[in-house]
Design a protein around this nucleic acid. Structure first.
Length: 953
RNA sequence: GCGAGCGUAGCUCAGCGGCAGAGCACGCCCUUCACACGGGCGGGGUCACAGGUUCAAUCCCUGUCGCUCGCACCA
């Protein structure tokens, strides 16, 4: 056996007894990687021959989960297929720095290092030390996810691996920031944003998950006064007041108005008056806004512009606060600000309790109801995120969104499944400015500097030496402490990874990328933003197709999560069953537009499939050895096995012609499935062919000619080799390891010949992954042999059915008599008697008339294709009653089939309007059923007349 | 509320105009010389419900019910 790093891959021969993936997977991956099998070339390669994809970069903190396994399996299938087709294939790997997640990991780690029971925080360490520490953590742990991708078999071009915070990508980020700023598309401003008090950072809209929470609806009284502070009277003379319902009573501290609908007659007399803010006594205006829903609650709404997005909009419309500051009462630290008066300093929850208590005491709390409402939770930590007013950086998104919408409308980018385009448009049409600053340390620090002298901002690619506005020296400048949203750098991924902003060969060869494959859950986060950035900076789409796969869920259809404990760990599956069965399972289940409910049973089923394939290959080896042992002259024919078979196709025996013909159909199906991104179709076709055509029938048929020896043995060995090799190549994108292992064991294979191979330096590289992908050869299609084998299968299955239904042991041999209804059928039966005998396991097959079994009772099996009647003597073999039952069952079925066809043919409209071929075929069926029925009835009659048998009712 | 998707064998899912398919599970028979991670035979479904189009509907259209996921939310 050769060393895995040698030019010829290790050839394990003879093959192990059964499929044991753990014994070869890791070594094969190393072999491929060491020999640059995954490497793409950008040296003078024509663009037209390029196929490129970028991996959706997993978090450096990540561990491979089923979602990763699915997307990377799908992508690897596409890439391996394209590579075998000879395209210059790039699949670019990398990881994402994942701002919040990574920072949280490191913070957790350092917390343990605190002294005197006090956890160490990043603030204790200081920014530089903390960032250095995080880099160290990344160096130590960041390779976990990439190593796991290797275990899965992902054929990524590792030499081009990138990280969103490496030097090149950081440069790209700064370039983009500066240019967008200079174009006025990035600005800094004080706006209402989502704030996570736990993570202590601003969040984008997308990072806040609205979640149902049980809460309360508190109804509060706001008294109404006029400008001079005197109570306003209702028409009936009572003091006017508004009852306002709220789910967050503590926010009243920040109220700057009360809103009612302008056409609400109930409140007409309050227009222009003031409301008295409970507890604080502040006078706030009553504004008129049609946003207010008159039907809901009391039809009056408290307006807290600093802590509610809708209220913020109302306030803006009415130019509020009139004479009052926009009051922020919820602080970034999770406590009420000094603006909250006596409540200042309290935590939000405490403030709520105190406010409610005080309201109750003041008699201003009139009603409490249970209420189900939505609360925004921080995507990362699942704590409640609060809307607050804060100074942040934003991307002005509308000008970027417009071309991105058009690109999809014009079909420059096509989503698959198509229905996701609607989701994309929906979001893009209503898109809001993107808050990109995060109050974290781990990430791309915003390239903006503040001047200590003139207070102006200098935005620059590198640290500026002086203020752009007042020319104060660099020492007077302080860089913005915030970092950018992680998705900002991800948005540049398709071109930043290829070397942008430099002009590189890689960009010229591989941009735009061919396909983006990812989950629909990040259409907004990632896909849309890549489209916007790609169009803006590269003047072209970042990818031409977007393939979106389903979500992987557990058997019950629930999202897998650690807290639910329903996670199926792909690595555990790989350890136990191998990477290939997992990959095949995922491919087989990758139907579009639905959830994937993964079950381990299914994986085990495909492991059995690998074992089946293993043993089929083993069968070939045993037969080849046997032939050689018998002194058979069996060398590789000149022109190769395939060429030999093509040349001698008309001299092949039926079973060989048949399997080669069926193989062509398989190749077409597999190719079509890959082409249409219906991987499940390809996987199913491969499974069906391998197990049920190749193993169940072809191998069984082959045993006879292999035993016979001579020329038929040789052609059968060639056929076996050829079909096996084609099959392994077809399966390779789906199951790279087992196919490589088995292919390596085959004789008469050739060194890699695809263009991808030619770029490789080594003269002789043996690997299936750089073999040309099989192409259908119409000339090998053979309808005649397909009819022959179908007929043989019919006969064999009929006899097996007789045996099975009557519980006759396989050991019990019996003779079958056949009676052909036409001469051709007799010829056919003679020609294939050996095959029928062997596969049906019967002792003899003879021509004979009724009664020639010399048995008192005979079983009768009428067939229409081929047109023969089979007879089996029952004496000493089967209880007559059992056979009667079998006949009756058969009769019932034929009867119902016949009735069905006749009902159809009885309809004049059917005969008149249905396609003539269909009508003709129905007529044919009717005749067949009638004939069968007659023969079955006769058989039943005869069997019931046998002396000693009680006639059946 | 708007949008998307899904309801097919006990379970997981294919099929998407011409007599319902697979895997697993189940029953019976087999340690037959590639494979017990196996072979053979079999049982099991008013294709959610109600209408419509069609010669023909699990498949197309409409509605109902049930489930899932986005988006927007009524404070």
């Amino acid at each position: 056996m050769q060393h895995p790093q040698g030019p010829i891959r290790p050839t394990p021969h003879p093959l192990a007894k059964s499929y044991e993936p753990a014994t070869f997977e890791t070594a094969l991956y190393e072999y491929w990687n060491n020999h640059q099998c995954f490497a793409a070339s950008d040296e003078n390669e024509p663009r037209q021959q390029a196929f490129s994809m970028v991996i959706p970069p997993p978090n450096v903190t990540g561990a491979l989960h089923m979602g990763h396994a699915l997307t990377n399996t799908i992508q690897d299938i596409l890439v391996r297929w394209r590579r075998m087709k000879g395209e210059n294939t790039l699949w670019l790997p990398g990881t994402d720095h994942a701002g919040i997640a990574t920072q949280a990991q490191v913070e957790k780690a350092i917390a343990k290092e605190g002294k005197g029971g006090r956890p160490l925080t990043r603030h204790d360490m200081g920014r530089d030390a903390f960032i250095a520490r995080t880099w160290k953590w990344k160096e130590e742990h960041g390779s976990q996810i990439t190593n796991q991708l290797k275990r899965l078999g992902s054929s990524l071009d590792w030499k081009r691996e990138r990280f969103t915070m490496d030097e090149g990508l950081s440069k790209a980020v700064r370039e983009v920031f500066v240019r967008l700023y200079e174009e006025g598309l990035i600005y800094r401003g004080e706006r209402i944003i989502n704030w996570c008090p736990r993570c202590q950072t601003a969040l984008s809209d997308l990072e806040v998950i609205p979640t149902d929470r049980k809460g309360f609806f508190w109804h509060l009284i706001y008294k109404i006064v006029d400008d001079s502070g005197k109570p306003v009277k209702n028409p009936d003379g009572s003091d006017a007041q508004l009852v306002i319902a709220t789910t967050r009573p503590e926010t009243l501290l920040g109220d700057t108005a009360v809103a009612v609908h302008p056409d609400d007659e109930r409140y007409r007399h309050l227009h222009g008056k003031k409301a008295v803010l409970p507890l604080l006594g502040r006078l706030i205006p009553i504004v008129l806004d049609s946003y207010v829903d008159r039907e809901f609650g009391s039809g009056a709404l408290k307006v807290t512009p600093a802590h509610d997005f809708n209220d913020y909009e109302i306030a803006k419309r009415h130019n509020l606060p009139q004479g009052l500051p926009m009051i922020s009462v919820m602080g970034k630290d999770g406590r009420i600000t000094p603006a909250g008066g006596p409540y200042g300093g309290l935590k939000f929850a405490e403030a709520r309790e105190r406010v409610l208590q005080d309201l109750r005491e003041a008699g201003l709390l009139v009603k409490v109801e249970d209420h189900l409402h939505k609360v925004g939770l921080c995507q990362r930590c699942e704590n409640v995120a609060e809307p607050i007013i804060s100074k942040q950086w934003f991307v002005k998104i509308a000008p970027l969104a417009k071309p991105a919408i058009e690109a999809v409308e014009q079909g420059k980018i096509v989503f698959s499944p198509k229905s996701w385009e609607k989701t994309y448009f929906e979001w893009m049409y209503n898109i809001r400015d993107w808050c990109i600053s995060r109050q974290l340390w781990w990430g791309h620090q915003i390239p903006a500097w503040y001047c200590g002298r003139c207070q102006e901002i200098t935005v620059s690619r590198e640290a500026p030496t002086q203020c752009k506005h007042c020319t104060a020296p660099g020492s007077e400048l302080r860089q913005d402490e915030d970092v950018l949203d992680t998705w900002f750098s991800s948005a540049l991924w398709p071109f930043s990874t290829l070397g942008w902003p430099e002009s590189t060969k890689a960009i010229r060869t591989f941009y735009p990328t061919s396909i983006l494959e990812t989950g629909f859950d990040i259409i907004f986060f990632w896909v849309a933003r890549m489209i916007m950035m790609g169009l803006h900076f590269m003047n072209d789409v970042p990818f031409r197709k977007v393939y979106l796969h389903a979500m992987v869920r557990d058997e019950k259809g629930e999202k897998m999560s650690k807290s639910k404990g329903n996670v199926i760990d792909p690595l555990v599956i790989i350890e136990k069953h191998g990477a290939d069965p997992l990959r095949f399972t995922l491919a087989a289940m990758a139907g579009q537009g639905r959830d994937i409910k993964l079950s381990v049973d299914r994986v085990e089923g495909y492991r059995a499939f690998c074992n089946k394939l293993w043993n089929a290959t083993k069968f070939f080896h045993l037969q080849l050895e046997a032939a050689k042992g018998a002194g058979e002259d069996i060398e590789e024919p000149a022109g190769g096995v395939e060429g030999w078979l093509r040349h001698h196709r008309n001299e092949l025996i039926a079973s060989n012609r048949w399997i080669l013909s069926r193989l062509q159909t398989l190749i077409e199906k597999v190719e079509q499935g890959l082409e249409k991104f219906e991987l499940n179709e390809s996987a199913q076709a491969l499974y069906e062919f391998t197990w049920h055509e190749f193993c169940d029938w072809y191998i069984e048929f082959s045993k006879l000619p292999l035993k016979e020896g001579g020329q038929v043995r040789v052609q059968t060995l060639y056929t076996l080799q050829s079909v096996l090799e084609a099959l392994l190549k077809l399966m390779h994108p789906f199951m790279p390891f087992v196919t490589e292992e088995l292919w390596g064991s085959l004789p008469w294979t050739r060194p890699a010949t695809t263009p991808a191979r030619r770029r490789n330096q080594e003269p002789e590289l043996f690997t299936i992954m750089l073999q040309p992908f099989p192409r259908p050869e119409p000339i090998m299609k053979d309808a005649e042999s397909e009819r022959t084998i179908e007929a043989l299968k019919t006969i064999i299955e009929a006899i097996r059915n007789f045996r099975g239904e009557n519980n006759i042991s396989p050991k019990t041999a019996f003779t079958v008599i056949y009676n052909p209804s036409i001469a051709a059928a007799d010829v056919f039966m003679r020609m294939y008697a050996h095959d029928i005998k062997a596969l049906a396991r019967i002792s003899d097959l003879q021509r004979g008339e009724q009664g020639s079994t010399k048995s008192k009772a005979e079983a009768v099996i009428p067939l229409t294709n081929p047109p023969v009647e089979l007879r089996i003597g029952l004496d000493g073999l089967v209880n007559v009653q059992e056979e009667t039952k079998r006949l009756e069952k058969e009769l019932e079925k034929v009867n119902s089939d016949l009735a069905h066809v006749q009902r159809k043919l009885a309809q004049e409209t059917f005969v008149a309007k249905a396609p003539p071929e269909l009508v003709a075929s129905e007529r044919r069926k009717e005749q067949e059923y009638k004939t069968k029925l007659l023969e079955l009835e006769r058989a039943l009659k005869r069997i019931s007349e046998i002396p000693g048998q009680a006639p059946r009712a």
